[in-house]
Simulated scan of single mutants.
Amino acid sequence: MHQAFQDKHDGLSLRMGTEPEMMWLKKDENGKPNGGYSNPYCYHIDQFESLRPVYMKVMEYSRKMGLDMIQGDHEDAPGQLELNWMFDDVLRNADRLTTYRQICAQVAREFGIIACFMSKPFMGVSANGCHHNMSLWRGGEDKMRPTGNDPDNLPGLPHNYMYVSGGDNTFMPDGDDVQMPGKAGLAAIGGIVHHLRALTAVGSSTVNSYRRLWDTGFWAPVFADWGFQNRTTGLRVSAPGRFEYRSVDSMVNPYLMGSTILAAADDGIDNSLDPGEPEERNIYEAIQAGKQVKKLPMTLGEALEALAEDKVVQRGMPGEMYRLYHQYKHDEWERFNHTVTEWDVETYLDCLP
């Protein structure tokens, strides 16, 4: 998909950086989750330090595997960390996110704890999001980053340590507005805004994903709009030169997310789709002022219906992929709907209507 996109658009390529939030949880005597390994205090240095043995082991393994680790912080849920590596070509970044998850699972085994990427294991605290920061570039070349290893004796495959560097970022402003992306970048954003409801079925791919959208007040976006540094919209320009797709959580398949974003961006460029004016107000205030804004799907079933109606996003799942995705995810949604939950029992068991 990426190669076809590059060939079609004169070498235009997608670079992606992901922000995988996840929770490190303690186990009870039965091996079940028993609260966080740290307390839910956002950006708290002491809580971050309490997880130092865990994240230092994650970083050690990650660097051996070619992940250029650049930053990390404690988020505001129990045991919740976000560790980031340098952005890169969309496919290599997907490989690294997949590798990172496996590394976290191994470290959890070594420490006797749980590495949880489930979107919403607890209500009333932030979910595990996985924001995708994207930009479209022309040019650039692969350069070796040993990530702290001996460059003459790198473990693994040399390709693991390649990162694309340089080139021209089409998401950088090219006019007087220092925030507004350039023309090609803006058209790509228009495509993503236009297809945001269908993309939600890929970015929020589980029944549990939508607990994140319903638990309001914890920064999860529920509206199909965009803005500058606006955390109440599904998309935002988080910094000049990059665009943050926010309607995605840590259960995402990064390969499908990358390929469907490419399909939406391709449609935006082909048809010069206008994303509309960036919304700088709190989206709830804008709605109260009379703005008509589409909501994102609020259940997996609704998202799958939006995807079923969107042939452009389906192009990001070529061959048998869309049919299989539709089949498996509809099965997941139907199995949930014929399951009696604890909520059902607690709410209705003693009712005498």
Rank of each mutant, 00 (worst) to 15 (best):
H2Y: 04
D7Q: 14
L14G: 07
L14A: 07
G17V: 02
T18C: 12
P20R: 11
E21F: 06
E21D: 01
L25I: 05
K26V: 01
K26E: 04
K26M: 08
K27Y: 03
G31V: 04
G31C: 05
K32G: 01
N34Y: 10
G35H: 09
S38P: 04
C42A: 15
Q47A: 02
S50M: 01
P53W: 06
V54Q: 09
V54R: 08
Y55F: 15
M56R: 15
K57I: 00
V58A: 08
M59S: 08
K64H: 06
G66M: 10
M69T: 08
D73L: 14
H74T: 00
Q80R: 00
A94I: 03
D95A: 02
R96C: 04
T98I: 07
T98Y: 01
R109D: 11
G112R: 14
I113T: 11
I114L: 12
A115P: 03
F117T: 07
S119W: 01
P121D: 07
M123K: 09
M123I: 14
G124L: 12
H132E: 05
W137L: 15
G139E: 12
E141H: 15
K143H: 12
K143M: 15
G148A: 03
N149H: 02
D152K: 11
D152E: 10
N153D: 06
L154I: 03
H159Y: 09
H159D: 11
H159Q: 08
S165Y: 15
G167L: 12
D168S: 12
T170P: 11
T170E: 15
F171Q: 09
M180L: 15
M180W: 06
G185K: 14
G185P: 09
A187G: 00
A188V: 06
G190I: 03
L196D: 04
L196N: 02
A198W: 06
L199P: 00
L199V: 10
L199M: 06
T200N: 03
G203D: 05
S205C: 11
V207F: 08
N208K: 13
D215Q: 12
T216R: 13
A220N: 01
A220M: 00
F223T: 07
A224I: 00
T232C: 08
T232K: 04
T233L: 09
L235G: 01
L235P: 00
V237M: 12
V237W: 08
V248H: 02
D249V: 03
G258D: 02
S259E: 07
A263D: 12
A263S: 13
A265H: 06
D266I: 05
D267H: 14
G268A: 08
D274Y: 05
P278S: 14
E279G: 01
Y284A: 09
E285D: 11
A286D: 10
K291P: 00
K294C: 06
T299M: 04
E305L: 01
K311C: 01
K311S: 14
V313C: 08
Q314N: 15
R315A: 12
P318M: 09
P318L: 05
H326F: 05
Q327A: 12
Q327E: 13
Y328E: 14
Y328Q: 04
K329S: 11
K329V: 11
D331Q: 15
E332L: 14
W333Q: 14
R335Q: 15
F336D: 08
H338I: 00
V340F: 05
V345P: 00
E346L: 13
E346R: 11
Y348K: 10
L349C: 07
L349G: 00
D350C: 11
D350E: 08
C351F: 10
L352D: 10
P353W: 05
